[in-house]
């Protein structure tokens, strides 16, 4: 593998730290992802594989949501020795872009949110999404953000509401990490409040 598991994964980790401590900050895993060209047999995107290599080992469990989940799970297990688990038990849930529609919502609903005593035992959901870029479709607020910060994530479905329901009893909740095809990374820890900017419909104007 051209990827250096010491230095390149350190760099992935630092970007993950940057994005998680400043939700809305989009970091670019492009440089590290390019090193996986021709060597990624998992069916996951390069950036998702980078995150798996950074976070997984035999001490944690994971589950993949994908049309080819078995293949991805087998490959990730062989690369990291992490074991698979059911969605409500797993420490890391990976949602690939070929997963059934509604998989992200399903994962959010089923994921382990931790307990009041041990909120750190909650799951992290890592999902492949449509383009992540600057924009003002979503407005983020919370720790790590000075006042509020706008961002665009191309993704349908009512994941925002599901996430809000799941995280309403802070500190229990789940943390989300999104990556897109261009290796852009966005992290939404449980403390981040996401609001969708809705298009105001004029038909109600009397």
């Amino acid at each position: 593998m051209k990827l250096d598991i010491v230095h390149d994964l350190q760099s992935v980790y630092r970007k993950l730290v940057d994005s998680t401590s400043r939700p809305g900050l989009i970091t670019d895993l492009g440089k590290e992802a390019a090193l996986l060209d021709g060597e990624n047999e998992t069916g996951c995107s390069h950036s998702l594989l980078l995150l798996a290599l950074t976070l997984l080992d035999p001490e944690v469990t994971f589950k993949v949501f994908s049309a080819n989940a078995d293949r991805a799970e087998k490959e990730l297990n062989q690369l990291t020795f992490a074991k698979t688990a059911e969605a409500d038990q797993a420490d890391y849930l990976f949602i690939l872009d070929d997963a059934e529609e509604g998989s992200l919502e399903d994962a959010i609903q089923r994921a382990n949110p931790g307990t009041y005593l041990n909120p750190h035992k909650s799951a992290v959901i890592i999902a492949e999404t449509g383009a992540i870029r600057d924009g003002d479709h979503l407005v983020l607020k919370g720790p790590g953000i000075q006042t509020s910060t706008p961002v665009n994530v191309e993704m349908d479905g009512n994941w925002i509401r599901r996430r809000e329901e799941k995280n309403k009893e802070y500190p229990v909740g789940v943390d989300l990490i999104f990556v897109d095809q261009n290796n852009q990374l966005l992290s939404l820890p449980r403390t981040t409040q996401v609001t969708e900017k809705r298009v105001v419909m004029n038909e109600w104007v009397m």
Partner: peptide, 11 residues
Amino acid sequence: RRATLKAIAIP
């Protein structure tokens, strides 16, 4: 690293 990321998520 895993513990640190959790710590950042739960200030």
